[in-house]
């Protein structure tokens, strides 16, 4: 198991190095760190001096080495001229909003997709299954932003029962001003409902279908037939024997899809004016803050790599076959 974790970890490091190289090349070619630091009103001579001082005229690999070293040891990902703060700080203060959005959505997806997917597999001919399956095709074809706009129209404008924009009332989770959470106030939770629903319409159909098809496949296996032959109850056969085997592939996909969800938060954050990382990203694009853009790219890539690695390791713990393969 330890060998497996180490191997997986090394893979993650290699991936991060490749990504950082690409990112650094873009930054080096197109970025303007002098402007990021002192703004645009400096003479060419001053620029040259500052550039020398910052080591911008050193060989590429030396600069790349320094970039990685600063990023790893000091968490230094450059400065944002837009916010006039270190990039990492800007990203960290925007992260909680996005993370809470993703958590809320993941919650909705898990709570709904597991029972619905299992039900559709067990009773494929019932009207609820048919309805769920047709509805899921529609859900897949519906862009998130359109769902979001329609939800706002219905719940916020027409019926006026839920708020439409922003995060609402937030409280400081750790008392240090970094994690402002909306999960602890009624108003904050109310503001979460619509964004989370619209984001979940994207993944929910996918998971219901995935769980359904995996479960149906598992139900056909010999070991399930054997479980029946042992005289186990339907509850036990379905929920203990079939369900766990269904979950294994689903967990892997879930890890990947959480990542995809981060991409789609951009759309929901834009519609709901949600002050998260996606909103910050679009701001950075509009104001051409390449430095922040690239820092964001690094952070997103890193979190993806971490999530994927954790999911793989988690999978190893649940699936005994992988665990053994890892120790050998």
């Amino acid at each position: 198991m330890i060998a497996f974790i180490i191997r997986r970890f090394l893979q993650a490091v290699v991936v991060m190095l490749v990504i950082s190289l690409v990112v650094f090349a873009i930054k080096k070619e197109f970025g303007d760190p002098v402007r990021d630091l002192v703004g645009e009103r400096v003479t060419p001579e001053e620029r040259q001096q500052i550039a020398d001082k910052m080591g911008l005229n050193d060989p590429f690999l030396v600069q790349y080495g320094r970039f990685v070293k600063n990023a790893v040891t000091k968490g230094d990902l450059g400065r944002s001229f837009l916010y006039n703060k270190p990039n990492l700080e800007v990203i960290i203060t925007h992260a909680p909003a996005t993370i809470e959005l993703v958590l809320g959505t993941a919650f909705i997806i898990i709570v709904l997709s597991l029972p619905l997917g299992v039900y559709c597999a067990l009773k494929p001919r019932s009207w609820l299954s048919r309805f769920t399956m047709s509805f899921s095709t529609l859900g897949v074809s519906m862009p998130v932003f359109l769902t979001a706009i329609l939800l706002i129209y219905l719940f916020a404008v027409h019926w006026q029962i839920l708020p439409s924009y922003g995060r609402g009332e937030t409280v400081d989770l750790f008392g240090n001003g970094i994690w402002m959470t909306g999960l602890l106030t009624i108003d904050g939770l109310k503001h979460l409902i619509l964004p989370c629903i619209s984001l979940s319409t994207l993944m929910l159909p996918l998971f219901i279908r995935l769980i359904r098809s995996e479960m149906m496949e598992v139900l056909e296996t010999e070991y399930i037939k054997y479980a029946w032959a042992k005289g186990l109850s339907p509850r036990r056969v379905w929920l203990v024997h079939a369900f766990k085997n269904t979950l294994l592939p689903v967990i892997t996909v879930f890890g990947v899809q959480i990542g995809i969800m981060f991409a789609f938060t951009l759309l929901t954050e834009l519609v709901f004016q949600w002050p998260g990382m996606g909103f910050m990203f679009l701001e950075a694009v509009n104001r051409a803050d390449l430095s922040l853009l690239i820092a964001y790219l690094v952070v997103v890539a890193a979190s993806f790599v971490v999530v994927n690695t954790v999911v793989d390791i988690l999978y190893g713990f649940i699936n005994p076959t992988v665990r053994i393969a890892g120790t050998k």
Binding site: V15, I26, F30, V256, I260, A263, A284, L290, A301, V305
Partner: peptide, 22 residues
């Protein structure tokens, strides 16, 4: 694998964002 571990929409967004900024 590396590219697959990132959502394609994310990749597309980054590409067009960087292009637009640059």
């Amino acid at each position: 694998d590396i590219q697959f571990s990132f959502p394609y929409l994310m990749v597309a967004i980054f590409m067009s964002a960087i292009f637009q900024v640059v």
